[in-house]
């Protein structure tokens, strides 16, 4: 078969029902180590539910979540996780918010702090280290939230519409920023969005989900080369892929 690649995450027939609502039909999905996988689907199709299952917040009705060969179903502490809401705590500075995940599991050391400062400086937050979150713009706050996710040292990062609340200009900046950090750190990213452009701009692979009850209707390889930039948005491959994804989402022919 093809080249050997390591599977980091595997969902095996994972489904979730709330009362009568099938939030997520039994779904299987494999994510390669180091890849950037976008998940697109209409609102309410179970994307966040899938993340909550992977994160261990929800116990699935059935199936298994496997991370690097080990079953982690319904257990927490194995992934990085970030939402549209930045969830920064107002009573801590940027630096202390970045180390928040650590603080929640053990005592924060000088090394932890030094690392927080280093990544913050490296990715454009250096001058805000001692600011409280209330002084930051939405984009900056999301950067801090992402840094907080990053210093957990989890290999798998679940990002649930992290830029959903930002204006278009800021969002594009954030997308380029995220790609830079991703390239530097080599993490594996699962990225939920309902913005088709965003999913194509960022990903190696696009998983398209159907309306409720959510299931995977297509799993597309993204042929666009990296590094990506504004120019990417105008490439024929981009347009073609966009037409395809939109077609899948809206059932039209494209």
């Amino acid at each position: 078969m093809g080249p050997v690649s390591t599977t980091l995450l595997e969902l095996r027939e994972v489904g979730k029902t709330f009362g009568d609502t099938v939030a997520l039909a039994p779904t299987s999905l494999a994510v390669e180590e180091g890849s950037f996988v976008a998940i697109v689907g209409p609102s309410g199709c179970g994307k966040s539910t899938m993340f909550n299952v992977v994160a261990g917040l929800l116990e699935p009705d059935g199936g298994e979540v496997v991370l690097r060969g080990a079953t982690i179903t319904a257990t927490t502490g194995h992934v990085g996780y970030m939402l549209q809401k930045d969830l920064l705590v107002p009573w801590r500075t940027v630096e202390d918010n970045i180390t928040m995940a650590t603080r929640l599991t053990r005592r924060v050391t000088d090394e932890d702090r030094a690392e927080a400062r280093r990544v913050a400086r490296q990715y454009g937050l250096g001058e805000f280290l001692r600011h409280y979150p209330s002084a930051l713009s939405g984009g900056m706050r999301q950067r801090v939230a992402f840094m907080r996710t990053l210093v957990t040292h989890q290999e798998l990062l679940l990002l649930d519409e992290p830029f959903g609340a930002l204006d278009a200009q800021t969002r594009l900046e954030m997308q380029e920023w995220l790609l830079r950090v991703w390239k530097d750190t080599g993490r594996t990213v699962l990225f939920i969005t309902h913005d088709v452009d965003e999913s194509i701009f960022l990903s190696d692979r696009i998983v398209v989900m159907s309306p409720r009850p959510g299931r995977v209707v297509a799993d597309l390889v993204n042929p666009l080369s990296r590094p990506r930039g504004i120019h990417t948005l105008l490439e024929p491959d981009f347009i073609a892929l966009k037409a395809k994804v939109l077609g899948l989402l809206h059932g039209g022919d494209a």
């Binding site: 909550n52 261990g56 917040l57 927490t76 502490g77 996780y81 939402l83 809401k85 705590v89 929640l104």
Partner: peptide, 13 residues
């Protein structure tokens, strides 16, 4: 905020 408490749980707090 329950989301904040969930985030703490995800981190294994």
């Amino acid at each position: 905020d329950p989301d904040l408490k969930n985030l703490a749980r995800v981190y294994g707090a």
